[in-house]
């Protein structure tokens, strides 16, 4: 049998409580090793254990998109991903989008087009939008709307979000996130 890894109990100073797993993965380019209760989701690990609170919890049920992050380059929901499943994966969060201290073009476009109000869904919208460009699905407003529909915005900044994405797509499309 080749179970990997056979897990030691979590280090108590890392996450108090029951035995868990240690997960080695990369977050925003930095290797991390996190010992935690097996029940801990990627979302809670980012927020509670790695102090990366930019990724938001809006439902914890996979229904709102606020926790959207990239795992190995694909947009997924951190609330329905166990931390333990991320062993060896590369995770990118909203905190990892900027390059050399400069905001990502999508972040700038959201500000320019007022693509948010309360701002709570915004990190998820932006992570989704960056992936959308990578997926080459920002060719029409209709496509942008359809393929962004997994990200709810209760303040309803939708038209402005679409405008921001269209703007970035027209300025350089998939290259904009380089």
């Amino acid at each position: 049998m080749t179970f990997t890894p056979e897990v030691p109990p979590a280090a108590p100073d890392s996450h108090p409580g029951v035995a868990g797993t240690t997960t080695a993965f990369t977050v925003n380019g930095t290797p991390r090793s996190v010992a935690a209760d097996t029940r801990v989701t990627l979302l809670d690990a980012l927020r509670d254990l790695l102090a990366l609170t930019g990724t938001k919890k809006g439902c914890d049920q996979g229904a709102c998109g606020a926790c959207t992050v990239h795992v190995d380059g694909r947009r997924v929901l951190a609330c329905l991903t166990l931390l333990a499943q991320c062993e060896g994966r590369e995770v990118t969060t909203i905190e990892g989008l900027s390059r050399d201290g400069r905001p990502h073009p999508m972040q700038e476009a959201f500000v320019r087009h007022d693509g948010f109000q309360c701002g709570y869904c915004t990190p998820g919208q932006i992570m989704s939008a960056v992936a959308l460009l990578r997926e080459d699905r920002a060719r029409t407003d209709k496509d942008i709307r359809e393929f962004m529909s997994g990200n709810l915005c209760r303040c309803a900044a939708y038209p402005n979000i679409v405008a921001a994405i269209r703007d970035v797509a027209q300025r350089g499309g998939v290259d904009a996130d380089l």
Partner: peptide
Amino acid sequence: MRTFEYVRPLDVPDALAAH
């Protein structure tokens, strides 16, 4: 959620055995 053990087999026979 109650506590659970987490295992990550790499092939199907191991998965069946783990289950």
